[in-house]
Write a protein that binds this DNA or RNA. Sequence first.
DNA 1: CTTAAAATATACTCAAAGGGTAAACAATTA
DNA 2: TAATTGTTTACCCTTTGAGTATATTTTAAG
Lengths: 134, 134
Amino acid sequence: MQINQATDYSFRVVLYLSTLPRGEVVEAQTIAQTQCIPMRYLFKIMPSLTRAGIITSQRGVGGGYVLAKDPAEISLLDVIEAIEGPIRLNRCFIDEHYCSKNGPPDCPVHQALAGIQQRLNADFSKVVFSDLLE
Amino acid sequence: MQINQATDYSFRVVLYLSTLPRGEVVEAQTIAQTQCIPMRYLFKIMPSLTRAGIITSQRGVGGGYVLAKDPAEISLLDVIEAIEGPIRLNRCFIDEHYCSKNGPPDCPVHQALAGIQQRLNADFSKVVFSDLLE
DNA sequence: CTTAAAATATACTCAAAGGGTAAACAATTA
DNA sequence: TAATTGTTTACCCTTTGAGTATATTTTAAG
């Protein structure tokens, strides 16, 4: 019931990129240093953010990373899903066979969790990075 | 970002006990069989529910488990906290030193997560077991 | 007071996930 | 073509999670 370290780092990365002038390319080392993230670790999470369309990357001399959208269009949920995949409050939301009892349609717990999960998703998607620039 | 297996089992245990006539003592084996939970595993989670005051246990011949309160007074949150402890969406809610940057008071992400966590707790505590008896 | 039934405590194994590191590779620009 | 910078793949170690085994304590009944 916790976001993982990679996601937390990613929040910081996106928040940092949001503070920069639109379109400014910044290299990995700068991000790592200013945000206190191990370089090697950073290299592991950046491709996920790129694939998710949150940032774009540029190789070669003068390369680096840029935000791909406006900070007002990137939510906490976008980053979470980019790194961890969709939020599933219980295993049976991934695969019904995990429910060794009657199965979802008849399971009142399942239904209650589904509602809570839906609200949680909504809450995470309501917060966008432009809100976080104080 | 998922409740664990022990918590899911516990939901089932409490839900099952909620269906019984008030005060009826039922032994571990019956719970395990009807709810499809491994006996040994059940023995591991029951003490936590007892300590949390959700059920009471009785040893010896004719012993077993009983619900300690009315199902209307036991929430999903009660069970989650009994098994997993309080919900913390990020490590820095457990210990600030996990935040290798500025620390909570200045961290806008921290504040956003705190709000979401609070609502999540509220949602979990709103659902009580009497609601789940269809 | 002894015995059997039941929960409790402790400890162990095995597999999976999380956090972090390393090195070879591919692309771009000067 | 050489240097710079991101990408890919793979590995290691520690922690957590799921499940199992055994010995112990409590209690009621004979």
